[in-house]
Amino acid sequence: MSLIPLRIPMGYAVCYNKFSDVEPVPCKDSDGLIDNWGYFTEDILQIVKMQIKDGEWVIPKENKVILDLGWYPDSSLYGHYKLVLVNEHWEVIREKYSNNRFEIRDTLEDWMNNPFV
């Protein structure tokens, strides 16, 4: 499977990415779980907004802005993507829920261009 193509503007660091262009496949035993569960876990994507310090791009220790994507409940066929924009204390600034990976991609790209709208 391939990753979802993302338009990431300058100033962001991708810390973790397994946001794949794949649909959930139900388990054959109809237990409500996803057969390809590895793509649908709580840890799918994390991107951090960087800052320029002394002329260099760095991931800040304070005033950090984090974009985090996961699937909730983890591995559940009845789950959904949860995208959050949080600060370094994991206080939610913005959040979006959807089963549609393309809607999540579009929201993610919009938030990177307009993080505090």
Results as ranks from 00 to 15, higher is better:
Tyr39His: 13
Lys53Thr: 01
Glu109Lys: 00
Asn17Pro: 01
Met112Arg: 01
Gly32Arg: 05
Trp71Leu: 09
Trp57Glu: 08
Lys49Pro: 02
Asp68Ala: 08
Val84Arg: 05
His89Ser: 15
Tyr97Pro: 00
Gly32Ser: 11
Ser30His: 10
Ala13Gln: 02
Gly11Ile: 13
Gly70Phe: 07
Asp29Arg: 00
Ile93Cys: 04
Pro60Leu: 14
Asn63Arg: 02
Val48Trp: 05
Glu56Leu: 13
Ile66Met: 11
Phe40Ile: 03
Gln51Ala: 15
Ser76Lys: 12
Glu42Trp: 05
Tyr97Trp: 07
Val117Arg: 07
Ile52Pro: 00
Asn87Asp: 15
Asp54Arg: 14
Pro24Gln: 04
Lys61Tyr: 13
Met1Phe: 10
Asn87Ser: 06
Glu42Val: 05
Pro60Thr: 10
Asn113Ala: 11
Ile4Tyr: 05
Val25Arg: 08
Pro26Ile: 14
Asp29Gln: 08
Asp31Glu: 08
Arg105Thr: 06
Lys82Gln: 12
Gly70Leu: 01
Gly38Lys: 08
Pro5Thr: 09
Gln51Tyr: 08
Ala13Gly: 00
Asp68Asn: 07
Trp57Arg: 04
Pro115Val: 15
Pro73Lys: 05
Arg94Cys: 01
Arg101Tyr: 14
Glu23Pro: 00
Gly79Cys: 03
Glu109Tyr: 01
Pro60Cys: 11
Pro60Ser: 14
Gly70Thr: 02
Trp57Met: 13
Pro9Glu: 04
Glu56Met: 14
Leu69Val: 04
Lys64Arg: 15
Ser2Pro: 00
Glu91His: 09
Val65Ser: 12
Val117Tyr: 06
Leu6Gln: 01
Cys27Ile: 10
Asn63Ile: 01
Gly32His: 04
Gly55Leu: 15
Val92Arg: 04
Tyr81Ser: 06
Cys15Ile: 14
Phe116Cys: 03
Val48Asp: 10
Ala13Tyr: 01
Gly70Val: 01
Trp37Glu: 15
His89Phe: 15
Ile34Gln: 06
Gly32Cys: 12
Asp31Arg: 14
Gly79Ser: 07
Tyr39Glu: 04
Val84Glu: 14
Ile93Arg: 13
Glu62His: 10
Asn87Arg: 10
Glu62Met: 13
Asn63Gly: 13
Pro5Met: 12
Lys49Glu: 15
Asp43Val: 12
Val84Gly: 05
Asn114Phe: 07
Leu45Pro: 04
Leu67Glu: 02
Trp90Arg: 04
Ile4Cys: 07
Asn99Ser: 11
Ile93Pro: 01
Gln46Ala: 10
Ile47Asn: 05
Ile44Pro: 00
Val48Phe: 03
Lys96Pro: 00
Asn36Phe: 08
Pro115Met: 09
Asn87Leu: 05
Ile8Leu: 03
Asn63Pro: 07
Val84Thr: 06
Glu95Ser: 07
Phe19Asn: 11
Asn63Ala: 11
Ile44Met: 10
Val58Arg: 09
Cys15Val: 08
Asp29His: 02
Val58Asn: 07
Gly70Gln: 03
Pro5Arg: 00
Phe40Gly: 09
Val22Leu: 04
Phe102Ser: 09
Gln46Lys: 08
Met1Trp: 02
Arg101Asp: 11
Asp54Trp: 11
Asp110Asn: 06
Asp110Ile: 02
Asn87Lys: 08
